[in-house]
Simulated scan of single mutants.
Amino acid sequence: MTTNRETPRHATATATADHHGDRRPPTLVFIHGTNSPSFMWSGLISELTLRGHRGVAVDLPGHGDEAFIPRAYQAPQDLEALATEPSPLAKITIDDYVERVVEVVRRARRHGPVILVGASQGGVTVSRVGNAIPDLLDRVVYVAAYCCVDLPNLNAYLSTPENSDSLLPQVTQAMVADPAILGVSRLNWRSADPEVIRGIKECLAGDFTEEAMTRLLNMLEPDETAGIPMADARGEAQTWGRIPRTYVRFTLDRLIPPALQDRFINEADRLTPDNPTDVRSVAAPHVGPFGRPELVEIFSELAGR
Protein backbone atom coordinates (compact mmCIF):
# COMPACT_ATOMS: atom_id res chain seq x y z
CA MET A 1 0.00 0.00 0.00
CA THR A 2 1.29 3.45 -0.83
CA THR A 3 0.40 6.84 0.48
CA ASN A 4 0.20 10.29 -1.00
CA ARG A 5 -0.54 11.74 2.42
CA GLU A 6 1.19 14.95 3.41
CA THR A 7 0.97 16.10 7.03
CA PRO A 8 -0.19 19.72 7.31
CA ARG A 9 2.66 21.89 8.53
CA HIS A 10 0.73 23.01 11.61
CA ALA A 11 -0.44 19.54 12.61
CA THR A 12 2.62 18.66 14.67
CA ALA A 13 3.96 22.16 15.14
CA THR A 14 4.48 21.77 18.90
CA ALA A 15 5.49 18.12 18.96
CA THR A 16 9.22 18.68 19.27
CA ALA A 17 9.07 21.36 21.95
CA ASP A 18 6.41 19.54 23.95
CA HIS A 19 8.26 16.21 23.92
CA HIS A 20 10.47 17.26 26.82
CA GLY A 21 9.15 20.73 27.65
CA ASP A 22 12.53 22.16 26.70
CA ARG A 23 12.20 25.48 24.85
CA ARG A 24 15.89 25.92 24.04
CA PRO A 25 16.78 25.80 20.33
CA PRO A 26 17.44 22.25 19.12
CA THR A 27 20.62 20.84 17.68
CA LEU A 28 20.19 18.94 14.43
CA VAL A 29 22.49 15.89 14.31
CA PHE A 30 22.96 14.51 10.79
CA ILE A 31 24.02 10.96 9.83
CA HIS A 32 25.29 10.22 6.34
CA GLY A 33 24.52 7.20 4.18
CA THR A 34 26.64 4.39 2.82
CA ASN A 35 30.08 5.03 1.29
CA SER A 36 29.73 8.69 2.26
CA PRO A 37 31.31 11.24 4.60
CA SER A 38 29.55 13.79 6.79
CA PHE A 39 30.51 16.41 4.18
CA MET A 40 27.40 15.37 2.24
CA TRP A 41 25.44 17.57 4.68
CA SER A 42 27.70 20.63 4.45
CA GLY A 43 25.50 22.70 2.14
CA LEU A 44 22.41 22.16 4.27
CA ILE A 45 24.20 22.87 7.55
CA SER A 46 25.76 26.05 6.14
CA GLU A 47 22.35 27.42 5.10
CA LEU A 48 20.74 26.45 8.41
CA THR A 49 23.59 28.06 10.36
CA LEU A 50 23.11 31.30 8.43
CA ARG A 51 19.48 31.22 9.58
CA GLY A 52 20.55 30.90 13.19
CA HIS A 53 20.07 27.16 13.67
CA ARG A 54 22.52 24.65 15.16
CA GLY A 55 23.63 21.57 13.29
CA VAL A 56 26.41 19.00 13.37
CA ALA A 57 27.18 16.19 10.92
CA VAL A 58 28.64 12.98 12.32
CA ASP A 59 31.32 10.94 10.58
CA LEU A 60 30.49 7.33 11.37
CA PRO A 61 33.50 5.13 12.24
CA GLY A 62 35.65 4.51 9.18
CA HIS A 63 34.29 7.54 7.30
CA GLY A 64 35.25 11.15 6.70
CA ASP A 65 38.39 12.01 8.64
CA GLU A 66 38.73 8.30 9.48
CA ALA A 67 38.11 7.04 5.94
CA PHE A 68 40.27 4.29 4.54
CA ILE A 69 41.31 4.86 0.93
CA PRO A 70 42.96 1.73 -0.51
CA ARG A 71 46.34 2.34 -2.05
CA ALA A 72 45.12 0.52 -5.16
CA TYR A 73 42.21 3.00 -5.48
CA GLN A 74 44.59 5.87 -6.23
CA ALA A 75 45.76 6.81 -9.71
CA PRO A 76 46.98 4.83 -11.49
CA GLN A 77 44.52 2.24 -10.21
CA ASP A 78 45.50 -1.38 -9.70
CA LEU A 79 42.17 -3.18 -10.14
CA GLU A 80 43.56 -6.59 -9.26
CA ALA A 81 45.00 -5.33 -5.97
CA LEU A 82 41.86 -3.28 -5.31
CA ALA A 83 39.84 -6.50 -5.18
CA THR A 84 41.97 -7.96 -2.37
CA GLU A 85 43.51 -5.10 -0.35
CA PRO A 86 42.32 -5.50 3.28
CA SER A 87 40.18 -2.81 4.89
CA PRO A 88 39.90 -1.82 8.57
CA LEU A 89 36.18 -1.22 8.01
CA ALA A 90 35.69 -5.00 7.94
CA LYS A 91 35.87 -4.97 11.76
CA ILE A 92 33.32 -2.17 12.22
CA THR A 93 29.74 -3.05 13.25
CA ILE A 94 26.40 -1.31 13.64
CA ASP A 95 27.10 -1.16 17.37
CA ASP A 96 30.14 1.01 16.64
CA TYR A 97 27.95 3.32 14.56
CA VAL A 98 25.37 3.56 17.34
CA GLU A 99 28.00 4.22 20.01
CA ARG A 100 29.45 7.09 17.99
CA VAL A 101 26.08 8.76 17.45
CA VAL A 102 24.89 8.22 21.04
CA GLU A 103 28.01 10.02 22.26
CA VAL A 104 27.28 13.00 20.01
CA VAL A 105 23.60 13.09 21.01
CA ARG A 106 24.48 13.03 24.73
CA ARG A 107 26.85 15.97 24.29
CA ALA A 108 24.34 17.95 22.23
CA ARG A 109 21.48 17.22 24.67
CA ARG A 110 23.27 19.18 27.40
CA HIS A 111 22.45 22.32 25.43
CA GLY A 112 18.85 21.63 24.49
CA PRO A 113 16.63 19.36 22.38
CA VAL A 114 18.11 17.10 19.71
CA ILE A 115 16.70 16.23 16.30
CA LEU A 116 18.41 13.17 14.80
CA VAL A 117 18.49 12.97 11.00
CA GLY A 118 19.62 10.14 8.73
CA ALA A 119 19.83 9.75 4.96
CA SER A 120 19.70 6.47 3.03
CA GLN A 121 21.48 3.72 5.02
CA GLY A 122 21.88 6.27 7.82
CA GLY A 123 18.27 5.45 8.69
CA VAL A 124 19.47 2.14 10.12
CA THR A 125 21.58 3.99 12.69
CA VAL A 126 18.78 6.47 13.43
CA SER A 127 16.40 3.63 14.33
CA ARG A 128 18.95 1.84 16.47
CA VAL A 129 19.83 5.05 18.34
CA GLY A 130 16.11 5.71 18.79
CA ASN A 131 15.74 2.30 20.42
CA ALA A 132 18.74 2.97 22.68
CA ILE A 133 18.12 6.52 23.94
CA PRO A 134 14.54 7.59 23.11
CA ASP A 135 14.38 10.06 26.00
CA LEU A 136 17.29 12.06 24.60
CA LEU A 137 15.71 12.58 21.17
CA ASP A 138 12.98 15.11 20.42
CA ARG A 139 12.48 14.04 16.81
CA VAL A 140 13.91 11.58 14.31
CA VAL A 141 13.97 12.44 10.61
CA TYR A 142 14.47 10.04 7.70
CA VAL A 143 15.61 11.61 4.43
CA ALA A 144 14.91 9.06 1.68
CA ALA A 145 16.20 6.57 4.23
CA TYR A 146 15.67 2.96 5.25
CA CYS A 147 13.21 2.85 8.17
CA CYS A 148 12.78 -0.82 9.01
CA VAL A 149 9.70 -1.86 11.00
CA ASP A 150 8.04 -5.11 9.84
CA LEU A 151 11.14 -6.72 8.31
CA PRO A 152 14.31 -7.21 10.35
CA ASN A 153 16.89 -5.39 8.30
CA LEU A 154 17.68 -3.28 5.26
CA ASN A 155 18.59 -6.31 3.18
CA ALA A 156 15.17 -7.88 3.69
CA TYR A 157 13.47 -4.90 2.04
CA LEU A 158 15.54 -5.22 -1.12
CA SER A 159 13.45 -8.17 -2.32
CA THR A 160 10.04 -6.58 -1.62
CA PRO A 161 7.70 -5.62 -4.47
CA GLU A 162 8.00 -1.96 -3.49
CA ASN A 163 11.73 -2.11 -4.25
CA SER A 164 11.31 -3.69 -7.69
CA ASP A 165 12.01 -0.41 -9.52
CA SER A 166 15.26 0.24 -7.67
CA LEU A 167 18.32 0.81 -9.84
CA LEU A 168 20.67 -0.39 -7.11
CA PRO A 169 22.13 -3.07 -9.44
CA GLN A 170 23.47 -0.24 -11.61
CA VAL A 171 25.51 0.97 -8.63
CA THR A 172 26.71 -2.47 -7.60
CA GLN A 173 28.23 -2.84 -11.08
CA ALA A 174 31.01 -0.72 -9.60
CA MET A 175 31.69 -3.30 -6.88
CA VAL A 176 35.19 -4.73 -7.27
CA ALA A 177 35.32 -7.35 -4.50
CA ASP A 178 33.16 -9.98 -2.82
CA PRO A 179 31.87 -8.42 0.43
CA ALA A 180 31.65 -11.86 2.03
CA ILE A 181 35.40 -12.30 1.55
CA LEU A 182 36.70 -8.76 2.01
CA GLY A 183 34.25 -7.78 4.76
CA VAL A 184 33.41 -4.49 3.05
CA SER A 185 31.39 -3.32 0.09
CA ARG A 186 34.11 -1.80 -2.09
CA LEU A 187 32.92 0.35 -4.98
CA ASN A 188 35.17 1.86 -7.62
CA TRP A 189 33.65 5.30 -8.08
CA ARG A 190 36.58 6.06 -10.39
CA SER A 191 35.70 3.35 -12.87
CA ALA A 192 36.90 3.96 -16.42
CA ASP A 193 33.78 2.23 -17.79
CA PRO A 194 31.38 4.95 -19.00
CA GLU A 195 28.41 2.61 -18.73
CA VAL A 196 29.11 2.01 -15.04
CA ILE A 197 29.31 5.75 -14.40
CA ARG A 198 26.13 6.33 -16.41
CA GLY A 199 24.32 3.72 -14.30
CA ILE A 200 25.51 5.29 -11.04
CA LYS A 201 24.32 8.71 -12.21
CA GLU A 202 20.90 7.41 -13.23
CA CYS A 203 20.42 5.66 -9.88
CA LEU A 204 21.80 8.27 -7.51
CA ALA A 205 21.98 11.65 -9.14
CA GLY A 206 19.17 12.06 -11.67
CA ASP A 207 19.62 15.30 -13.59
CA PHE A 208 22.94 16.32 -12.03
CA THR A 209 25.24 18.13 -14.44
CA GLU A 210 28.41 16.34 -15.47
CA GLU A 211 30.38 18.73 -13.25
CA ALA A 212 28.16 17.97 -10.25
CA MET A 213 28.41 14.25 -10.96
CA THR A 214 32.20 14.42 -11.03
CA ARG A 215 32.22 16.20 -7.67
CA LEU A 216 29.90 13.55 -6.24
CA LEU A 217 32.08 10.67 -7.43
CA ASN A 218 35.14 12.27 -5.88
CA MET A 219 33.30 12.73 -2.58
CA LEU A 220 32.10 9.14 -2.24
CA GLU A 221 34.31 6.69 -0.36
CA PRO A 222 35.21 3.24 -1.74
CA ASP A 223 34.66 1.13 1.40
CA GLU A 224 31.58 0.48 3.54
CA THR A 225 31.38 -2.17 6.22
CA ALA A 226 29.45 -5.10 4.76
CA GLY A 227 27.41 -6.07 7.82
CA ILE A 228 25.15 -3.01 8.11
CA PRO A 229 22.46 -4.17 5.62
CA MET A 230 22.04 -7.40 7.61
CA ALA A 231 21.99 -5.76 11.05
CA ASP A 232 18.68 -5.75 12.94
CA ALA A 233 17.31 -2.25 12.36
CA ARG A 234 13.67 -2.46 13.44
CA GLY A 235 12.27 0.48 15.32
CA GLU A 236 10.62 -0.73 18.53
CA ALA A 237 7.23 0.65 19.53
CA GLN A 238 8.04 1.17 23.22
CA THR A 239 11.25 3.12 22.54
CA TRP A 240 11.79 4.46 19.01
CA GLY A 241 8.02 4.53 18.51
CA ARG A 242 7.55 7.19 21.18
CA ILE A 243 9.72 9.75 19.37
CA PRO A 244 8.01 12.20 16.99
CA ARG A 245 9.23 11.46 13.47
CA THR A 246 9.36 13.01 10.05
CA TYR A 247 9.92 11.23 6.75
CA VAL A 248 11.17 13.31 3.82
CA ARG A 249 10.23 11.47 0.63
CA PHE A 250 12.40 11.95 -2.45
CA THR A 251 9.95 11.48 -5.31
CA LEU A 252 12.68 11.12 -7.97
CA ASP A 253 14.70 8.56 -6.01
CA ARG A 254 15.81 5.57 -8.12
CA LEU A 255 17.73 3.80 -5.34
CA ILE A 256 14.99 3.72 -2.68
CA PRO A 257 11.85 4.04 -4.83
CA PRO A 258 8.97 6.19 -3.56
CA ALA A 259 6.87 3.03 -3.19
CA LEU A 260 9.37 1.63 -0.70
CA GLN A 261 9.60 4.93 1.12
CA ASP A 262 5.80 4.85 1.43
CA ARG A 263 5.97 1.31 2.78
CA PHE A 264 8.32 2.49 5.53
CA ILE A 265 5.89 5.29 6.42
CA ASN A 266 2.86 2.99 6.48
CA GLU A 267 4.58 0.32 8.56
CA ALA A 268 5.71 2.89 11.11
CA ASP A 269 2.21 4.36 11.36
CA ARG A 270 0.65 0.93 11.89
CA LEU A 271 3.15 0.23 14.66
CA THR A 272 2.49 3.56 16.40
CA PRO A 273 -0.98 4.80 15.37
CA ASP A 274 -0.92 7.46 18.11
CA ASN A 275 2.36 8.84 16.74
CA PRO A 276 1.83 9.26 12.99
CA THR A 277 4.65 10.24 10.68
CA ASP A 278 5.00 13.85 9.56
CA VAL A 279 5.46 13.36 5.81
CA ARG A 280 7.13 15.78 3.41
CA SER A 281 7.92 15.27 -0.27
CA VAL A 282 10.71 16.78 -2.33
CA ALA A 283 11.30 16.25 -6.07
CA ALA A 284 14.91 15.11 -5.71
CA PRO A 285 17.10 12.14 -6.65
CA HIS A 286 18.68 9.99 -3.97
CA VAL A 287 21.67 12.20 -3.17
CA GLY A 288 19.71 15.47 -3.23
CA PRO A 289 21.89 17.45 -3.01
CA PHE A 290 20.85 18.00 0.59
CA GLY A 291 21.46 21.74 0.47
CA ARG A 292 18.63 22.31 -2.00
CA PRO A 293 16.20 25.07 -0.94
CA GLU A 294 13.25 22.77 -0.26
CA LEU A 295 15.25 20.81 2.32
CA VAL A 296 16.59 23.98 3.91
CA GLU A 297 13.01 25.16 4.40
CA ILE A 298 11.88 21.84 5.90
CA PHE A 299 14.72 21.67 8.41
CA SER A 300 14.51 25.36 9.24
CA GLU A 301 10.87 24.83 10.13
CA LEU A 302 11.57 21.70 12.20
CA ALA A 303 14.37 23.45 14.06
CA GLY A 304 12.18 26.50 14.70
CA ARG A 305 9.35 24.64 16.39
Rank of each mutant, 00 (worst) to 15 (best):
M1G: 13
T7G: 04
R9D: 12
A11G: 05
T12L: 15
A13H: 14
T14A: 14
A17T: 15
R24W: 10
T34N: 14
S36K: 08
P37A: 14
S38E: 03
F39N: 06
W41D: 01
G43C: 08
G43H: 05
I45A: 05
E47R: 13
L48I: 08
G52H: 07
H53I: 10
R54Y: 04
A57I: 02
D59F: 00
D59S: 02
G64M: 07
G64L: 10
I69S: 12
Y73C: 09
Q77R: 15
Q77F: 09
Q77Y: 01
A81V: 05
A90E: 07
K91M: 10
T93Y: 05
T93L: 01
T93D: 07
D95P: 04
R100T: 00
V102Y: 10
E103H: 12
R106C: 03
A108T: 10
P113K: 14
L116T: 04
V117P: 06
S120N: 01
V124A: 15
R128T: 09
A132K: 12
V140N: 06
Y142G: 00
Y142W: 12
A144G: 03
C148V: 10
V149M: 02
P152V: 05
A156R: 03
Y157M: 07
L158Y: 13
T160P: 08
S164N: 10
L167W: 07
L168A: 12
D193E: 13
R198I: 05
E202K: 15
L204P: 08
G206N: 01
G206H: 08
T209C: 11
A212C: 08
R215K: 14
L216W: 09
N218K: 14
M219W: 08
T225P: 02
G227N: 08
I228D: 04
D232G: 06
R234F: 09
A237K: 15
P244F: 01
F250A: 02
T251V: 11
I256C: 01
A259M: 11
A259S: 15
L260H: 02
Q261V: 03
R263V: 00
D269Y: 11
R270N: 15
R270D: 14
D274L: 14
R280S: 00
R280F: 11
V282R: 04
A283K: 14
F290G: 00
P293A: 00
L295Q: 08
V296Y: 08
E297F: 03
E297C: 02
S300C: 09
